[in-house]
Design a protein around this nucleic acid. Sequence first.
DNA 1: CTGTTAGCGCTTTCAA
DNA 2: TTGAAAGCGCTAACAG
Lengths: 333, 333
Amino acid sequence: MGYINIKKLAEELNLSPASVSRALNDSHEISKETKERVWELAKKLNYEPNPSASNLRSHKSKTIAVIIPQVANSFFSLAINGIEKIARQRDYHVLIYQTHDNSDMEIAFINRLLNGRVDGILISISSSTIDNTPFTELIKNIPIVFFDRMYDEIDAVNITTDDYESSYQATQHLIEAGCQRIAYLFALNNLITGKRRMAGYVNALKDNNILYDEQLIITHIENEDEDYANIKNLLTSEKPDGIISSIEEMALPCYSACKQLNINIPGDIKIISFSNLKTAQLLDPPLSTVTQPAAEIGQKAAEILFKMLDKKHFEPKETIVLRSTIIPRESTR
Amino acid sequence: MGYINIKKLAEELNLSPASVSRALNDSHEISKETKERVWELAKKLNYEPNPSASNLRSHKSKTIAVIIPQVANSFFSLAINGIEKIARQRDYHVLIYQTHDNSDMEIAFINRLLNGRVDGILISISSSTIDNTPFTELIKNIPIVFFDRMYDEIDAVNITTDDYESSYQATQHLIEAGCQRIAYLFALNNLITGKRRMAGYVNALKDNNILYDEQLIITHIENEDEDYANIKNLLTSEKPDGIISSIEEMALPCYSACKQLNINIPGDIKIISFSNLKTAQLLDPPLSTVTQPAAEIGQKAAEILFKMLDKKHFEPKETIVLRSTIIPRESTR
DNA sequence: CTGTTAGCGCTTTCAA
DNA sequence: TTGAAAGCGCTAACAG
């Protein structure tokens, strides 16, 4: 196809190309009957407007970009799901970019998107990001919504979950279950997300008069084997009776380590993790989780972005907080 | 940005826009020193070409589309991972469309993509697809590569896995483990993928002189609750001692049902499933799997598509088969 | 309500 | 090796 264009439609209908264009875009300055003649022929000939031409002229790409660390991740794939749903409702197209937690890629992607390829950007920043200065400039040039992983300091539109509160509650949950030596698997430490989760843990300990012990903190590193070794070491030398994992990716090796060391879950140690694993209840034992409303976060982020695009001006900066759900599973065993 | 365009670069450099364009595209009819002058200024001014203008004129969008049933799925998210990797190497952009297994959406998406928005399409067709006639036309209009879920009958480029062989081997594995009444959880029944997996099961039974029993087949339906009820019913009334699940989405409820019915895995029943779950070994008990090389399939599909785009003609129709891995876990218990 | 004209930013002839 | 000119298909501005 593509052979059929507005000019041909116009000839066929004895109209000017401009009128055809207006009719196709449902302009109010075209009579209803003309519109219907145009629509009928367009449909009959299977006409699809050329997006490049339209975009070049109108400066609207009907496309948004999603920049995330990784697609193959339970949270992000669900978020994309939500985003795509909203985009489709609006007849928008969705571009995907993976940073693999490399913040340079992030900046490079955005710079490549400032030329009109997309109307707006949804981003979850990489955990290696420290310097936010490039972003303070970028968000002036294109509508951006941050979701889940965002900056603390810059004035942007953010969609996030109640990281502090849910982490606090998860800790409280373990304490009420009798844990006194609760270890914390620390990740996303450059991000406000990670800091808040940590703070929830620390404050819950304090409010329960349990001493914070640095020896019980393991910080996530890139290397899987080292991570695993560190966790194993923690389990043997510190003998915690509870563990909070701030990411799914650390809870799973922790499970393996417990099995290997013959540490009984939840008898010897209780584990709760931030996780969106659909199969959590089938793990051995079922994994207690802090589950984020991932798809809803994606949807909400997309909705806010479209609101910004509709209004043709940038939204007053705001942060929307959705609530996570704590699902304890120890009892089911 | 976006304010800086070729015309401005040309003025600044005392060159014609045409020469600047040629230099930026590394044309061989431009002197090396001119190219370098252009590149230097372009970089300095952070120039990014307007993709709409470029595409409108050159009919190259540097964009591919990925049409899949669902992002939030272990196989497809890994496949996207592989696709995005190759696309980035080629400086291409990746659009994502979810069909939610609705074949009408599929056709609608493709029709919307025939207007130059993308240079090529990677597609995994929906399991509800029966009629392939729209596709026989579509694949003449744009380069398309089918991956994992494709048509049997049409002459297209396909990337797939050894569904028949791996299913045969999985069945053989259960038989060698002593199973005699092996049930089959049948899905993707409209697709050649599903048919081949079924055929592998049937032929393995035959080659081992085990009677094929229709009562042992459960066909996947959309409704989760009904699926679950059917599986439970199968377990109680037919008492199989082995189960092959042709998709992950049926193996998981099967696990739950066994637990609920106090059927011991793998003591009373052995289960193996087509699955790409990274956490398979943490399930209770560890899940024996037929694992597809998901990311590699995505990569390969993208590579072939780019080969088609490079050659500017359509690839001779071919089917590339990658091998799945069978991972038995019963022994680890 | 409809037509005419111009031009978005780029690439591609054709000519020098 | 470079420049001038045309035009991809569409829509916005201006007329009428």
